[in-house]
């Protein structure tokens, strides 16, 4: 009932859940043995901002910039892709007709 047999292996979510609980208990155990005098909002965070005090809002990265590096690396791909997404309705129909022609040819010549 809980086990998924794929034909190549199997997967039981209960094992995952049990593992998850065990790991959680382990983390909580380690945490309970840590120092209690750390001020999470105090000077300890400053090394991450080169010693400058910054409010939390200023530290946030905007959604548009979250994967800046990835998008920059794939610039060529994205330039092509965004050009295709014109938003013009006649283009939508051109694509449809183009695909239809290709599929007619493929099915027509297929056995």
């Amino acid at each position: 009932m809980k086990t998924l047999v794929t034909g190549f292996g199997l997967w039981n979510p209960l094992v995952w859940i049990v593992a998850f609980i065990v790991i959680y208990i382990g983390i909580k155990f380690l945490e309970s043995h840590g120092r209690e005098d750390i001020e999470r909002d105090g000077d300890i965070v400053l090394p991450f901002t080169s010693g400058n005090y910054m409010d939390e809002e200023a530290l946030r990265i905007r959604a548009s910039n979250v994967y800046w590096g990835f998008v920059e690396a794939m610039k060529g791909y994205y330039n092509t892709l965004t050009k295709i997404h014109t938003g013009i309705m006649s283009d939508y129909v051109y694509w449809y007709i183009g695909v239809l022609v290709v599929i007619i040819i493929l099915i027509g010549v297929g056995k």
């Binding site: 939508y92 694509w95 449809y96 599929i103 007619i104 027509g108």
Partner: peptide
């Protein structure tokens, strides 16, 4: 071909997903 293309477009398949 008409069935496949039309239904794939309505299902949102690329390159008829716009």
């Amino acid at each position: 071909a008409l069935f496949v293309t039309s239904l794939a477009m309505k299902a949102g398949s690329v390159p008829m997903h716009f």
